Amino acid sequence: MRVHETSIDGVLRIELELQPNPDGWFKENFHRGKLAELGMDVVQHNVAHFEEAGIVRGIHAEPWDKYLSPTSGRVFAAIVELRPVPAFGRVEAFELGTADALYVPRGVGNSFCTLAPHTTYNFLVNEHWSPERVAVDLFDPELAIAWPDLPLKYTERDAANPALAALRA
């Protein structure tokens, strides 16, 4: 596993070793000791599967750290600094495939768009789920996220998220 810092403090882009074999590939997606070195003690593993490209979720900042990685397909991930720091509102985007992962600390917003049909996305978290979260409009012009040029599908709940400016108030 190779870890790279990003422009958002604490967000790490992780390259996982994908080992091809005659049947496909193998990867070590989770290693407790390696994640503990990053400061994460996993308590829950969630898996989401999406049948179509263009499914968008987010922007959500939850009260837990997240380790995100696709096991099939590809995703475009947009990460937004939502903690009360000078870099508030900074966006960084990534394209993630099966050999990639992101570590996103609590309070940082994350969102994604499936780039391929039959995408499966893993979320490891260090706190059990709760409804508490901060959310921001996926299409807020201030964030200027360059979403993929696909027909996008998102939930009514995400479409109703407030603008970034509302979080400053």
Score class of each variant (00 low, 15 high):
V91D: 11
T71V: 11
S72I: 01
K66F: 00
V75H: 10
Q19L: 07
V136F: 04
P86V: 02
P20L: 00
K66A: 08
A169Q: 14
A135L: 11
D41V: 14
N29A: 11
A36N: 11
E15I: 15
W147E: 06
A144S: 04
F50K: 03
H4R: 14
H4V: 08
P151D: 13
V42A: 08
P162E: 11
E52M: 01
I55C: 06
H45M: 12
I59S: 02
A48S: 14
G54R: 00
A48K: 04
N161D: 13
A163F: 15
L124K: 12
E132G: 07
K27Y: 12
A144P: 14
W64T: 06
L164Q: 12
A163N: 15
A61P: 11
G10E: 03
G109M: 00
S111Y: 01
K27Q: 02
N29R: 07
A166Y: 01
V43Y: 10
A36G: 01
A36H: 13
R2W: 02
P105K: 06
T71E: 05
G58H: 06
A78G: 08
L35F: 01
E52W: 05
E37G: 00
P22I: 03
Q44M: 09
L167Y: 12
S69I: 01
G97P: 03
P151F: 08
D137F: 09
G54H: 12
E92S: 05
E95R: 09
G39H: 03
A166P: 09
I8P: 08
G39N: 14
A163T: 07
R32K: 13
N126H: 08
E17W: 04
P86E: 04
T6N: 06
T120G: 05
A163Y: 15
E62P: 03
V125P: 05
D149W: 06
S69F: 11
A159K: 14
E51Y: 13
T114H: 03
A135M: 15
A146V: 12
D65M: 06
E17I: 02
P20T: 08
P148G: 06
P20A: 01
Q44A: 07
F30V: 08
E37R: 04
P117A: 04
E142Y: 10
M40C: 11
R106T: 07
I145Y: 02
E156H: 14
P162A: 02
V3K: 07
Y67I: 01
E51I: 02
E92T: 06
A87I: 03
R168D: 01
R57W: 07
M1R: 06
L152A: 09
G73V: 08
C113H: 02
R13W: 13
Y154W: 10
N21G: 07
D65W: 01
H49K: 10
A169F: 11
V56M: 05
T119K: 11
L152W: 11
R157S: 10
G89P: 09
L150N: 09
T6K: 05
L12R: 14
V43F: 09
L124R: 09
L18I: 09
L150C: 09
L115K: 01
V85G: 06
V125F: 11
N21I: 05
T119W: 03
E15W: 05
N46L: 15
R90Q: 12
G33H: 13
A93C: 15
R106I: 02
W129S: 09
E37M: 00
K34A: 08
Y121L: 13
G109S: 03
E51T: 10
M40D: 02
G39F: 00
